[in-house]
């Protein structure tokens, strides 16, 4: 083969990988949009959280919650977004497991494309569905007295996408090792609740025992929710004491930590997925 032929072959290879990536992404998006039941039911959970915690527990917690400047429901809203992103994008893993159970994964695995493109396409689909879902959820923001500006929204979507990369990669990682939907859901549920409640989504993690603080520090959701708060509260005047309690890290710290977690999970998911026969 001449050098020109090799080069042409490589170009064709890159184009094919890009096309495969895109088709996997498109397929999942198409299915997500088609399954309206799934969209509605996955919106019920955050609404339930906002209703039960935000309105129901509001008075138990003393009217305004821990902060004078914020309503309790405003306090938990960034956390509810984070939890929703976690649930939605991790269910990307479920699509891999069901594809395996229904055989379609074989069609994908036997195609002349790399495992990297497959895993990347799946993660991209997780990010896409998470963004779609979050944009629906954000329609509720004005009802809660939060009116993010366009620039706030852009930043928020970027932050959501960042978290979704980490959680989708986690979903792909788990799915590459698990054969049945039942066991995936078991593992999923097992991980979900600690991630939920030890993320600072519902209460401030300043007076928790040390071991809980350690788990919270390892939880990517902690940093994502902190970042969401930085963005959503940027137009609210906060007292110094509140700010210290409410915003644990700087926004830059949050971004760096989530990026590192994302890269690690992404690499692990691609490697693990490549090894499945």
């Amino acid at each position: 083969m001449t050098a020109a032929m090799v080069e042409a072959g490589e170009r064709a290879g890159v184009r094919r990988e890009a096309r495969a990536f895109w088709s996997l992404f498109r397929r999942d998006m198409l299915k997500f949009v088609r399954e309206r039941g799934r969209i509605v039911s996955s919106l019920l959970q955050p609404i339930l959280f906002l209703g039960i915690f935000g309105l129901g527990l509001k008075d138990v917690l003393g009217g305004t919650g821990p902060f004078q400047e914020l309503d309790y429901i405003q306090y938990i809203f960034p956390g509810v977004i984070g939890i929703n992103v976690l649930g939605i994008s991790m269910s990307t893993g479920v699509t891999i497991v069901t594809d395996r159970e229904f055989g379609f994964l074989r069609e994908v695995l036997v195609a002349p494309i790399s495992r990297l493109s497959i895993a990347a396409g799946k993660v991209a689909a997780g990010v896409g569905t998470a963004l779609l879902q979050a944009s629906i959820l954000l329609l509720l923001a004005p009802l809660l007295g939060l009116t993010p500006s366009l620039s706030q929204l852009v930043l928020l979507f970027a932050a959501i996408a960042l978290l979704a990369v980490a959680t989708s990669a986690l979903g792909v990682l788990i799915a590459s090792r698990i054969r049945s939907v039942e066991s995936f859901q078991y593992v999923f549920q097992f991980m979900l609740f600690p991630l939920f409640f030890l993320s600072g989504a519902f209460f401030v993690l300043d007076r928790v025992p040390g071991w809980i603080a350690v788990i919270a520090k390892l939880n990517p959701l902690t940093y994502a929710i902190d970042l969401f708060r930085h963005i959503l509260y940027s137009d609210i005047e906060l007292s110094e004491a509140s700010e210290e309690l409410l915003l644990v890290n700087s926004a830059a710290q949050d971004v760096i930590i989530i990026v590192v977690i994302s890269v690690v999970l992404l690499a692990a998911s691609v490697i693990s997925f490549s090894r499945t026969e």
Binding site: R16, R27, F102, G103, E107, I113
Partner: peptide, 23 residues
């Protein structure tokens, strides 16, 4: 031996997906 179609897509969409991954 086992089915490997995506049942939630149409026949045409299944072919379209195949065309994409085979470029």
């Amino acid at each position: 031996q086992e089915a490997t179609l995506d049942e939630s897509l149409t026949g045409w969409e299944n072919l379209r997906f195949h065309a994409d991954v085979y470029d």
